[in-house]
């Protein structure tokens, strides 16, 4: 599908030759990927292959500099848009390390998000919907008034991302390692949440390191990333092959030395994000 150029506004995310740098270091090296609305795609790959960088870049995190290629949604290039503009066009990112915002409750955070997206609900409607989704994710109602992600366990943060996905109902969602760090019960709960929202109205790109979540959420397409590009695409059988053989044979087939891609992950947020004001000494000091 590389080079599939279309000027027609279609309901799909089209990533074409995308090249991205962080602090002058190239992380993505010409990614080609298409995710239509209504399909579930899986993006797999070893650590450091650039999967999270791709996710953050699609949503426009300022840390990433696009040096080549394009990324379009419904035919419109996203590259000149701010993250909030992208989200308001229907994009959503479930973060690998969701950020805590102390002092901002779950319910008020989502209220602000819905308002920004022009989806006005009454307080009663919002609370009702939230209670339903929180219950479906096997979380307690008390999370409604807790500060978003503040003091949440890793698993609670991941569940809360799926709660947000279910409440915000984006047209295209990227789930960045939503399965990582979950025990098998939590994984099933999260997967059920994804299955509940999947449908013809939503495109989903599941980024994962392992095949586990794909035992519960069956992807329509599977892509494998390594060394900053997509090296293989296929159906469910690709997952089985990786489970059987690991990534090595795919890497070798793509001319990549397997040991060369392991290493320190370059995705942001490997450390929990700092609290506000943690940026260092006062400039006035």
């Amino acid at each position: 599908m590389a080079g599939a150029v279309t000027a027609v506004a279609t309901e799909r995310l089209e990533i074409e030759g995308l090249a991205v740098e962080i602090d002058g270091k190239r992380i993505l090296d010409g990614v080609d990927l298409v995710v239509p609305r209504g399909e579930v795609h899986a993006l797999m790959g070893p650590n450091g292959s650039g999967k999270s960088t791709l996710a953050y870049t699609v949503l426009g995190h300022p840390r990433y500099t696009v040096t080549g290629g394009d990324c379009r949604w419904r035919g419109e290039s996203l590259l000149g848009l701010t993250p909030d503009e992208r989200a308001r066009r229907g994009l959503f990112l479930s973060l690998q390390y969701p950020t805590a915002i102390p002092g901002v409750s779950v319910v008020n955070f989502l209220r602000a998000a819905l308002k920004a997206q022009g989806k006005t609900l009454t307080a009663r409607e919002l609370l009702g919907r939230l209670r339903g989704e929180i219950g479906a994710l096997k979380m307690d109602d008390a999370f409604l008034s807790r500060y978003i992600n503040d003091g949440f366990s890793g698993g609670e943060k991941k569940r809360m991302e799926i709660v947000q996905l279910a409440v915000l109902r984006p047209a295209l969602a990227i789930l960045d390692e939503t399965d990582s760090g979950l025990d098998v019960d939590a994984l099933r709960t999260v997967a059920e949440g994804v299955n509940r929202v999947r449908g013809e109205d939503m495109g989903i790109l599941i980024i994962t390191h392992y095949q586990r979540i794909l035992d519960y959420v069956t992807p329509d397409r599977v892509h494998v990333m390594a060394a900053g590009r997509v090296i293989a695409s296929g159906g469910r059988e690709l997952v089985d092959r990786i489970e059987r053989e690991g990534y090595d044979s795919l890497l070798r087939a793509a001319g990549i030395e397997p040991t060369g891609v392991e290493g320190t992950p370059l995705e942001p947020g490997v450390e929990p994000p700092p609290l506000p004001g943690d940026a260092g000494e006062s400039p006035g000091a």
Binding site: L59, F92, T99, Q117, A279
Partner: peptide, 12 residues
Amino acid sequence: DRDQLFYCQSRG
């Protein structure tokens, strides 16, 4: 905090 800002923006 930039990450908090991004998180909010990623929700629109």
